[in-house]
């Protein structure tokens, strides 16, 4: 077994330490009693957590982030699921081309998309910053919604739907009572993936700035640029806890590594 070779094990240990060590370091910094970003921390305290949870700009940004992530996810699924259905079950001739079209938003650099939306939506068409931000997130999440629900549809047993139709169910009844329950794990996976992708996005929110469009990552970024206190370390630690929770919930819903590993690797595939 070449997989048991000590060199493979040693290199892997180095890689995983490099990957996860720095993230854990931030947790240590967050518990400092001192005023600067420092590791090992100077004394232990929870003061930066208390401050993070009562810091107005971060709380407001968190509200914006959650609002955009949830609205964007709902919109992307509302638009994407029908597309996936049409591509998977419909008789469209140019399925391949349309499928490719819907992967484009993740291929074009996010910063370019953000800049384009800023120019066209905000400057030319005078759309509000929040409207442009929501539109940008929706279009960014659309590829995930189409592909994740699409692969779920491809795996679903078509004969169930045909049986329902044969027994007299209409198109809508077949969809809501047979197709949707069957692909529910795929829809759940698409939701989690969309929420995480939107919540973590920086370029769109940074370029489409206006009243009420500062999201949490952007607020953290601005804070880091000007202050050297451990406030952001505390927020990072809280987000780490949130990510662990998301991981456990996703594992229950659809298999954590299935959802995230496969989707990241297949990003560009229609």
């Amino acid at each position: 077994m070449t997989g048991r070779h000590p060199l493979v094990g040693a290199l892997s240990a180095v890689a995983l330490t490099f990957l996860l060590g720095p993230i854990l370091l931030v947790v240590g910094v967050a518990f400092t009693a001192g005023d600067t970003i420092e590791f090992p921390p100077r004394g232990l305290s929870l003061r930066w957590f208390a401050q993070a949870l009562s810091y107005g700009p971060f709380l407001e940004a968190l509200r914006t982030s959650l609002l955009v992530a949830m609205a964007g996810t709902v919109l992307a699924l509302a638009l994407g699921l029908p597309v996936a259905l049409a591509l998977g079950r419909g008789g469209a001739r140019s399925r391949g081309a349309i499928g490719t079209l819907f992967t484009l938003p993740v291929v074009v650099p996010e910063l370019v998309l953000g800049y384009a939306l800023f120019q066209i939506l905000m400057v030319t068409f005078r759309v509000s910053a929040f409207g442009a931000l929501l539109a940008g997130h929706t279009v960014l999440l659309l590829p995930y919604a189409v592909r994740v629900t699409g692969s779920s549809l491809a795996q679903a047993d078509r004969s169930l739907e045909e049986a329902a139709r044969g027994l007299g169910a209409g198109g809508w009844a077949t969809f809501t009572r047979v197709t949707l329950p069957v692909i529910a794990p795929g829809v759940a996976a698409a939701c989690v993936l969309s929420l995480v992708t939107s919540f973590n996005n920086v370029p769109l929110s940074l370029l489409l700035n206006g009243p009420g469009t500062t999201t949490l990552p952007v607020a953290m970024l601005h804070h880091v640029e000007f202050a050297f206190d451990p406030l952001v370390a505390a927020v990072c630690t809280l987000l780490l806890v949130l990510a662990v929770a998301v991981m456990l919930v996703t594992e229950r819903l659809a298999g954590f590594t299935d959802v995230f590993a496969r989707q990241e690797a297949d990003r560009w595939r229609p």
């Binding site: 720095p22 420092e38 590791f39 998301v246 991981m247 590993a261």
Partner: peptide
């Protein structure tokens, strides 16, 4: 696999911040 995929759940701001400390 879960350990390797986990960082993808975190914002790039969180993952980059640690390097400021180091």
């Amino acid at each position: 696999l879960a350990l390797a995929v986990f960082p993808l759940l975190l914002s790039t701001v969180v993952r980059t911040y640690s390097w400021l400390v180091i």
